[in-house]
Every structure is written in C-alpha cells, then in structure tokens.
C-alpha cells in the first residue's frame, strides 16, 4: 500500500542531489548518500511506505538509475512531484517505483502530513488535512509496466 509520511522537497532536485557523484559504482551503499547534499541521513528518517513530495523538474540531470533506485531502497513507496525530468521519470517507471505528476501537490501537502495514493483511482488523500488532490492519469504503456512491477517483469510477461 502507498501510505505514509510525506517528505517535502523543493524544485530542481537533480540527480547529483539525489545520489551524488560516483555513487553508481560497485559497492556504494545508495541509501547512505540519498539526498545528502540537502538532507543528510535522510534514509534513516524514512519508514517503509513513506512518500516523497517534490516541486518542479524532479530528477533532472544524469541518466543514472541510481537516483530512483536509492529512493526505492530507502523504503519510499512513490514520488509525487509538480513535474519530473524525462529520464528520471522513465527510470522510475522501469524499476516499478511510481512517479506521479501532480500539479499543485506542494500546496496541498506539507512536511510530515500522512498521505495515501490510490494508483488505480488517480487520487492522493491527505489524511492530515482531509483534502484530496488528483494526479495526472497514467498512459496505458506506463500503467502496464507498473502493473507488471517494472520493465523486466513486463518483458517476461509479454515475451
């Protein structure tokens, strides 16, 4: 289930912030360095199922898949942002970590709000404020990759 505490980040959280340089090399513990330039020890705060809420152009920069991977490994169940950078978005889809575009989300959700995402109905419930906000509907191709659990699960299901 996608329900948990919201951690709110600003605009332009790029891949060098999410997983700083060099971290895609063998042996690096991704969760240790997650968000370290702006929020050291972030992964230690996260409980399984928690949700990142962010501003514009989340994940801009590198094609390194370590960015969504580190978020997923830390236990985050989804990222909801005003908008995403393109490569980050597809990397996130491919590993089965929902990346949901939701204009206005940073006005509706504050740090530490308890929120819940309905991937099927397109609604984010804010249990703290009692208000709902809708995210942009998912395309069929993207939905089918999420449904399979990621691109390679889709590969095995369709080949």
């Amino acid at each position: 289930m996608m329900r948990g505490t919201a951690y709110v980040f600003g605009d332009e959280i790029n891949t060098d912030i999410i997983t700083p340089r060099g971290s895609d090399y063998v042996g690096a513990d991704l969760t240790d360095i997650l968000m370290s330039p702006v929020r050291p020890n972030f992964a230690a705060e996260v409980d399984e199922g928690d949700i990142i809420v962010a501003g514009e152009h989340f994940g801009s920069g590198s094609s390194r898949e370590t960015a969504p991977r580190a978020i997923q490994e830390a236990g985050i169940s989804a990222v909801v942002a005003e908008s995403f950078a393109r490569i980050y978005y597809r990397n996130s889809v491919n590993i089965g970590l929902p990346a949901l575009t939701c204009p206005g989300v940073t006005e509706h959700v504050s740090e530490e709000d308890e929120i819940e995402i309905g991937l099927g109905n397109g609604v984010i419930q804010n249990h703290t404020t009692g208000r709902d906000v809708e995210f942009e509907p998912l395309d069929d191709v993207v939905q089918s990759i999420y449904d399979a659990g990621g691109l390679f699960k889709y590969y095995h299901a369709t080949k």
Partner: peptide
Amino acid sequence: VGKTDIAYISATGQAW
C-alpha cells in the same frame, strides 16, 4: 536512458 532501459534495448532492440 538509464540502465534498465539500456538492458531492455540491448535484449530486445526496442524502447518505449
């Protein structure tokens, strides 16, 4: 694209 895409394309020649 990132590594899952790369692996998928290397295996299938296709990208979504």
